[in-house]
Design a protein around this nucleic acid. Sequence first.
DNA 1: AGCCTGATGTCAGTTCATGACATCGAAAGA
DNA 2: TCTTTCGATGTCATGAACTGACATCAGGCT
Lengths: 188, 188
Amino acid sequence: MARWEPNARGRLEDAALDLFTERGFDKTTIAEIAQRAGLTERTFFRHFADKREVLFGGSALLRDLLTGAVAEAPADASPLDAVAAALEKAGSLLQERHPYARRRQAAIEANEELLERELVKLASLADALATALRSRGVAAPEASVAAETGIAIFRSAYPLWVAADDSTQLPDCIRAAFATLRGLTAPE
Amino acid sequence: MARWEPNARGRLEDAALDLFTERGFDKTTIAEIAQRAGLTERTFFRHFADKREVLFGGSALLRDLLTGAVAEAPADASPLDAVAAALEKAGSLLQERHPYARRRQAAIEANEELLERELVKLASLADALATALRSRGVAAPEASVAAETGIAIFRSAYPLWVAADDSTQLPDCIRAAFATLRGLTAPE
DNA sequence: AGCCTGATGTCAGTTCATGACATCGAAAGA
DNA sequence: TCTTTCGATGTCATGAACTGACATCAGGCT
């Protein structure tokens, strides 16, 4: 028989999102999260570097997905095409968890500190994308701009999807945002 | 005779940047910053919402400059042109403080929390740009994408300028990044 | 059996952040 | 000039976020 209940990390994540939703991030203490998960405050900090990080456990996964997709894009795909393909793939993954994404996003948007952390995660995704592009032989400036632009697109599309009804597909939103960008930069 | 030394806020900003440079953000306590500025910890928090904010007092200025520049762009300028013009104007302002920008950026890049705050400020600049574009009659999706793209450009250009020698001009870096973007999105 | 490992617990301490109230020059009005 | 009000700062107290050091103990390994 195991000494402890399994999946402490997952229990902490669930407890945290529940409490943030109920009473907000600020009004929730780590002791409360830990208690609801049947653990102690100290153990929380063994699983998450700080209080906010408990909502961002999935971002490493997303990063791997994006870099993998860029690496596997057709050899003749342009940098921006590769980025677009990667973002749409990531969009498909997130699509599967629309209800969860909504709860999580509501909590994030209700709190400045969480918004900060989200932006950092997006920026690190941009870095990962740029690195993946360079591995394809894309020059550094192009890689950086393409990656940052991709994240800019995502930042435009994601809130629309989160706010939309369940039938709206995130990959479609992303495609639409890319089309908008091409319209903006097209010669008159 | 004044009851207190003038410019408490500025003294706190100077003391903070000095200490962050000397021993790093983490190893600096607010009590130390306040003491060096001849004030108390409590007063620090009357001037800045938290410890990081002491490095970001200028961002409101930058936001006003950007929104003003967008508003004053020629009526026939495209959204992206208006954003580009605003960014170059902001670039000129920052150019005047290259040495300060370097010290500040070194401190920021040495600490994850400060990096977070910087990203938030950039995101709020993106929001401000988008709002200014909508005031010009630009539709919401175009405004959002143009603004986010502009900030993406800035994020690509700014580190290059900070790392470059004193003769490098930030507006030039921004123009170059825009040119890179147009190259990326141009039809083959 | 005996040892080791690793996830968790316990406890003490530092720092960040905020609320409540006190202080006292200076500006403004009677 | 006297008095009042105001605003920037100080003092004190407290809660909550984090961190380091050490203890515990089931399960696996030899």
